[in-house]
Each structure stands twice: as structure tokens, then as C-alpha cells.
Computed example of a mutant assay.
Amino acid sequence: MNTTTNAVRAGAWRGWVEFRQSLTNAQDLLGYFLMPAVFLVISFSVGGETIPGTQIPAGALIMAGAVGFLVFIAGGMTVAQILAMEREDGTLLRSKAVPQGMLGYFVGKTCYMLLMTTLGVAIIVVPPVLLIDGFAVQGVAGWFHLVWVCLLGLFATVPIGAAIGSLISNPRMIGLVMLPFMALAMASGIFFPITAMPGWVQTLVQVFPVYWLGLGARSALLPAEAAQVELAGSWQHLEIAGVLGLWGVVGFLVAPVLLRRMARRESGSRVAQARTRAMNRPY
């Protein structure tokens, strides 16, 4: 068995172990259930309101958008946070020190993110199907669209998170990065129909993957009549695949360059300095 194959197998196993450990960690478990709970509360708070021009409850629109938002945050923010933290605590340096260690490291993180996102989507989809009218996976085609949109969404957003994580030396800065992520999500129609936004905002957000993630999730989880309130009056599946695929291809060309540069700069002295700074920070 060559070192590359061994690194891939070891990385996949590591991803599974990290995911399994997250199921025994109270903080991680809270993270799995907190976002679905918040969106459920928001969905119930809109009461009997419906999507303009349809009889579909507004709560169903919010929960469908939440699925796209979850993938966007998992691929972008969570990956960036993990990289920044493991850069500081020396995990990245230890991976760099073994043959094909960086390959194994990123295979492991990919597997972990895939498992974590799958569980997160299941948690955010199953309870609302039972509790919110108008929210349901739309048959076999709906399941198909949900799966490929989530997978392609991770393909598009994980490089974004990796690039951000490679540029951040202090994990506490992630909170500042979260603000533009939230603003972009709100402007992209995650919480309400994007047609309520000004025209220039509608044009701008179509450049970013979060709009297309939300659109794809809504196509899988809302009745066909909900498409009439979208910008094109349809679900635009080809456009969703094209934009997300383009973000993924460009991201996987750019992110590895940034990550390799980050890895080359890592050393024992830099990790020790980072640990000292972390210990001296006020909490």
C-alpha cells in the first residue's frame, strides 16, 4: 500500500472518529440542535402568514431556506473555525510532520464535514416535516434535488472556509467573519422572498453560492407553486448546478495554494507563541 492510499484511508477513518466523538460532546450536540430549534421558533412565530401570491405557509419557506443556510455555514464558517483552531493548537503542524499528512488531514476534515452536515440536514428537515404545513420533501425528485444540492453546496463552500481559515491566525476573529456571512444570507432570501429586496441586491447576491443553495433547498422542500415568487419564476436547477460547480472548481484551485502556504509557515515556535497568546487572552 503506498503512502497516498494509506493517507486517504487514515484520513477517512479519522473523519469518522471525529464525527463519532462529536456525538458524545455536549457542546457539539448543542450545535447540532440549536440552529434547527431557532429556525423552528422563527417559523412558528410567523403564525398563519403565507408566501405572497400562494397558500404556502411562510414558516415552510423559512425552514427550507434554513437547509441552504446550514450547508453554507458548515462549509464556510465551520471549516474556517476548525482550521484556525487546529493551526493554533498544533494539530496542523503534527499532520504536516508525517508522510502525506496534509492529504490525510484534509480527507479527514472532508469526511467529518460530510457526516456532520448530513446529520445537521436530517435534524433540520425531519421535525418540521411533522410540525409545519407545506414543508415536505417533494417526492423522489425532491430527495434527488436535496442530495445533489447539499453535496454540490459543500463542494462550493468548503474551499471558501479553507481559504478563510488559512488567512486567520486567531480563532477569535471568526466572530467578525460571521457578520458578513449573516448579512449575505439575509440579503439572499434565506428568511423571506428575495423579491422583497432592491433590484441591485437581487443581482449582487446571485454571484454568491448562498442564494443558489437556498433556491435549491426550496425546490426540494416546497410545492411547485412556490417557484412563482422566485426571481425567474422557476427553480433554475441548471443555473444552481452551474454557479455552485463554478465556485467549487475555482475554490479548489485557489484554496490549496493558500493552505500549502499556511502549512509551510507553521513551525513549533509559531505554535508555542500562539499557545502563549491564547493563554494570556482575557476570557
Rank of each mutant, 00 (worst) to 15 (best):
T4W: 10
T5Y: 05
A10H: 07
A12N: 07
F19C: 07
R20T: 15
N25K: 06
N25A: 11
A26P: 08
L30I: 10
G31P: 07
M35G: 01
P36F: 00
F39C: 09
F44K: 10
F44M: 13
G47R: 00
G48F: 04
T50R: 03
T50F: 02
P52F: 05
T54V: 11
P57K: 03
G59E: 01
I62Q: 13
M63W: 01
G65Q: 02
I82M: 15
L83C: 02
R87M: 03
L93Q: 03
R94A: 12
A97C: 11
M102Q: 12
L103Y: 05
G104R: 10
F106H: 02
V107Y: 04
L115N: 09
M116K: 14
V125R: 01
V126W: 00
P128I: 00
P128R: 04
D133R: 14
G134Q: 04
G134V: 10
F135T: 06
A136W: 08
V140H: 01
H145A: 11
V147F: 05
W148M: 09
L152D: 13
F155Q: 12
F155V: 14
V158A: 06
V158C: 03
I164N: 02
L167H: 05
L167A: 02
I168T: 09
S169Q: 09
N170R: 13
N170I: 07
R172C: 00
R172V: 11
L176F: 15
V177R: 05
P180R: 08
F181V: 14
L184M: 15
S188G: 03
F191V: 14
F191C: 01
I194Q: 09
I194T: 13
T195Q: 12
V201A: 14
W212A: 05
W212I: 01
G216A: 06
R218D: 00
R218A: 05
R218P: 04
S219K: 07
A220I: 00
L221S: 05
A226I: 06
E230H: 09
H237Y: 08
I240Q: 12
G242H: 10
G245L: 09
G248H: 03
V249G: 10
V249L: 15
F252M: 11
F252P: 08
A255P: 06
V257M: 13
A263K: 07
R264A: 13
R265L: 12
G268W: 00
A272T: 12
Q273I: 02
R275V: 10
R275N: 13
T276F: 02
R277Y: 03
N280E: 08
R281A: 13
Y283F: 12
